[in-house]
Computed example of a mutant assay.
Amino acid sequence: MSSPFKGQAGVRRIVNAAGYSWAGLRAAFVGEAAFRQLLLLNAILIPISFFLDVSRGERALMVAVCLLSLIIELFNSAIEAAIDRISLERHPLSKNAKDMGSAAQMVGMSVIAVVWAMILLG
């Protein structure tokens, strides 16, 4: 049984999904300072990776972990928006959800630091 909220099929579904994705990226850029900061970090680190004397595999990993931080931030922002939509009341479960999203981003940033350090210092 499919959800009554599901949309079109085929090419129309892909076009709709692309539009929703762009809307999500725009919402993150406009409404989330952390997303803009991570974009800036990516705009610095990714080009730098192309000037370093590393293998293609290492460069791909350096770029991938940078992009992973953006993915994590999108999920973190989505969790925060959903929690705030449900209620602005302070609740331990809401705090846990938001804190776990933040922790995921901290782990993601740690992965960037560790991967870059291992490649550059190893």
Rank of each mutant, 00 (worst) to 15 (best):
M1S: 13
S2Q: 11
P4C: 12
K6N: 13
K6P: 00
K6G: 01
G7A: 06
G7L: 13
G7M: 07
Q8G: 07
Q8I: 03
G10D: 10
V11L: 15
I14E: 04
N16V: 01
A17M: 02
A18S: 06
A18K: 03
A18W: 11
Y20T: 10
S21W: 03
A23Q: 13
G24Y: 02
R26N: 08
A27F: 04
A27V: 07
E32M: 05
E32C: 07
A34K: 10
A34I: 09
Q37N: 04
Q37P: 02
L38E: 04
L40Y: 05
L40D: 08
L41H: 02
N42R: 00
N42A: 13
I44K: 02
L45F: 02
L45Q: 01
F51E: 02
F51N: 11
L52W: 01
L52Q: 10
D53L: 02
V54A: 09
V54F: 02
R56E: 13
E58G: 07
R59Y: 01
L61R: 05
L61G: 12
L61D: 08
M62C: 11
M62S: 12
M62W: 01
M62T: 13
L67P: 09
L67C: 15
L68R: 00
L68E: 12
S69I: 03
S69L: 08
L70Y: 04
I71E: 06
I72D: 04
I72Y: 04
I72S: 05
L74H: 02
F75R: 15
N76W: 10
N76F: 09
S77Y: 15
S77A: 15
A78K: 11
I79K: 08
I79M: 10
I79W: 01
I79D: 08
A82G: 07
I83K: 10
I83W: 05
I83C: 15
D84V: 14
I86L: 13
S87D: 09
E89C: 00
R90Y: 10
R90E: 15
P92N: 14
P92L: 15
P92C: 03
L93A: 14
K95T: 14
A97W: 14
A97T: 06
K98F: 06
M100W: 05
G101F: 04
S102P: 03
A103I: 10
A103F: 07
A104V: 02
Q105P: 01
M106N: 02
G108N: 03
G108H: 07
M109K: 04
M109P: 01
S110D: 09
V111C: 12
I112M: 09
A113F: 09
V114P: 12
V115I: 15
W116I: 14
W116E: 13
W116K: 10
A117F: 15
A117Y: 12
I119H: 07
L121T: 13
G122D: 03
